[in-house]
């Protein structure tokens, strides 16, 4: 059980993030869920790459245990992507607030449906 501690945390974050995205109607809360979901993937990559006591891959007689640097670099990229997604999502939420006067999904869907019915009539 304790051996897989990090995986349990990863799965917990993943599932709860995805649940928030699906279950919440508030656009900001959805983005928070999305962020948690993405963060869980960072953990999934980083944890197997890190060895206890491991160091950066520098050839030196003092060190014999190394962590794998590649996943760290990959996740650095993924974090940047996550930040960009979050920034864009929040910007869209602001624009939606300006255009609809609400950031609740139900309300926006209601307004959209009303507009659609007005068009077809």
């Amino acid at each position: 059980m304790l051996d897989h501690f990090s995986y349990i945390i990863t799965v917990f974050l993943m599932v709860s993030g995805l649940y928030i995205v699906m279950a919440r109607g508030n656009l900001i809360k959805k983005l928070i869920g999305l962020s948690i979901f993405q963060t869980s993937v960072y953990l999934l990559y980083i944890v197997p790459a890190k060895l206890v006591g491991g160091t950066a891959p520098i050839i030196s007689p003092q060190f014999s245990v190394y962590s794998n640097p590649l996943p760290h670099v990959l996740i650095l990229t993924a974090i940047v992507v996550g930040v960009a997604t979050m920034a864009l999502g929040l910007a869209l939420a602001v624009r939606i607030r300006e255009a609809y006067g609400s950031i609740e999904e139900d309300e926006i869907t209601r307004l959209d449906n009303a507009a659609e019915q007005a068009e077809t009539r």
Partner: peptide, 29 residues
Amino acid sequence: RRALSASYRYLIMGSIGATFIVLGIGFLY
């Protein structure tokens, strides 16, 4: 203005899709 909500919806769905893809790639790696 519906372009905004369409874009937001696509952002959520698309990001979930992309994260699934990274997950898959992570397992393979």
